[in-house]
């Protein structure tokens, strides 16, 4: 029984990957189409942001070109489909294992990417950030590829040290935080490209259809502070769990160290945004470094560093 459910789960994940691939191609086509036909809207937005003395926060969505963005809508629909497939894969895995599906690297990867994509989809209700679609689906594809090829393990029961509600809370909140940091990093990367384009008046053409650098920075900030709150909670929940399981709430175990480092980097990022001379590109770099540290923490630290968190099940 467990075996069949588990294989259905894998099928769902593979299907999701196939659909993500098409969505990724569509998103990329959309970006290249934006490069081809630079709409005049962008030019207006551009001059407005240069002229205005005060930073006026216009409540506009990303300026949508007049012609219906057909590729973009198809890409979004495919992403939703892929996401639903992936979520069913994750849920099936959870049912097969009779516990939450995030107890080893494989499960954590599939759950975390589904949450990252889920955050991306949900955020659209707040802001049109569809231009990050290529970044997010590309990221999901790579993560799922690595997970299925390198991390796959059969369903096994949890060792006693992991049997705790704190596993559910701590890891889930960490993934949520990761989802927001991923979006924030995407926005910061676009912000850097945009800032360079604005400074040199040359660069990737599709950027002219996107919000200006200041606006991108504001968006990135809002997404990243939500991630930061979740990360703070991850840190505290981890400490509480460590106290229950290992008898001390903080012991500078490698995984604890890296969670702390990431927290401090993002605290630095928030500070940078409030420090003269550090707004703009410098703080964007900090956000990107922070997200890189998140990825490093999950991959390199889990695989190659020695520590108490050696439950990755590989």
């Amino acid at each position: 029984m467990t075996g069949t459910l588990d294989s259905y789960s894998l099928v769902a994940i593979y299907s999701a990957m196939a659909v993500y691939t098409i969505a990724f191609i569509m998103f990329t086509l959309d970006l290249s189409r934006r490069s081809a036909a630079t709409p005049s809207v962008a030019a207006v937005a551009q001059s407005a942001s240069v002229g205005g003395g005060t930073a006026v926060l216009e409540k506009t969505d990303a300026p949508a070109p007049a012609k219906g963005p057909r590729y973009l809508r198809a890409a979004m629909a495919l992403t939703v489909l892929a996401w639903l497939l992936q979520v069913s894969g994750v849920v099936l895995r959870g049912i097969a294992a009779e516990r939450v599906p995030w107890a080893n690297m494989f499960e954590f990867s599939i759950t975390a990417t589904s949450i990252i994509v889920g955050v991306f989809l949900l955020v659209q209700f707040w802001q049109d950030l569809r231009f990050l679609g290529a970044f997010i689906t590309g990221f999901a594809l790579i993560a799922l590829g690595v997970a299925t090829v390198n991390f796959y393990v059969d369903v096994v029961p949890l060792p006693p040290a992991l049997q705790s509600t704190w596993l559910v809370i701590h890891v889930f909140v960490a993934t949520l935080g990761t989802g927001f940091f991923a979006l924030g990093a995407g926005l910061s990367i676009v912000q850097l490209l945009q800032a360079r384009r604005e400074a040199t008046k040359s660069g990737l053409k599709f950027l002219s259809t996107l919000p200006d650098a200041v606006r991108l920075e504001t968006l990135a900030y809002r997404v990243n502070v939500v991630g930061f709150v979740f990360w703070t909670f991850t840190l505290i929940a981890g400490a509480i769990w460590a106290e229950r399981a290992w008898g001390r709430y903080w012991g500078w175990d490698t995984k604890e160290v890296w969670t702390f480092i990431i927290w401090v980097i993002f605290a630095g990022y928030i500070h940078a945004r409030a420090t003269k001379g550090w707004r703009g590109s410098r703080s964007a770099w900090l956000a990107i470094i922070g997200f890189t540290a998140v990825l490093f923490n999950f991959t390199i630290v889990n695989l190659f560093f020695k520590g108490l968190h050696a439950y990755s099940g590989l």
């Binding site: 160290v257 890296w258 480092i261 401090v264 630095g268 500070h271 900090l286 630290v301």
Partner: peptide, 19 residues
């Protein structure tokens, strides 16, 4: 603010060797 920022970043870097 700048000192606080630099010290925060230093703290992050200084924590690395121990891992």
């Amino acid at each position: 603010m700048r000192t606080a920022l630099v010290l925060l970043l230093l703290l992050a870097i200084a924590a690395i060797p121990g891992s």
